[in-house]
Amino acid sequence: MITVQVCFKSHFKELAGTSEDSFELEKGNMKELASKICGKYGKKMQAMLMDPENQSLNDRGTMFVNSKGLRVSIEDHLDDGEQVTFLVGIAGG
């Protein structure tokens, strides 16, 4: 069992109603974390977080990074104490 810290920013924060949370994971991977987040925060969060076509993370208009600033994908292993930040992926304007 590991604990992962989660940060929600901008639209993710609005959907979650909080900027921070933490989750205990048994398998310790991103798939499990995404499933727990969707279960806790509901359908809109699921629509934001997951790609309905292939059950991977929704890469479109989003950005999910670990504490090293690297994008995480659905199959990634997470370490105990890792922080994953959920961001809106947009630029310019």
């Binding site: 920013k9 639209h11 929704n58 990074v65 961001l87 947009i90 630029a91």
Partner: peptide, 24 residues
């Protein structure tokens, strides 16, 4: 319409980048 990220973009426009840029 299927992409919830678009709704976030409707709400904030490109200002949604502020948090991402601040974070990284």
């Amino acid at each position: 319409d299927e992409n919830e990220a678009v709704y976030g973009f409707k709400r904030r426009g490109t200002l949604g980048a502020v948090e991402m840029y601040q974070h990284i």
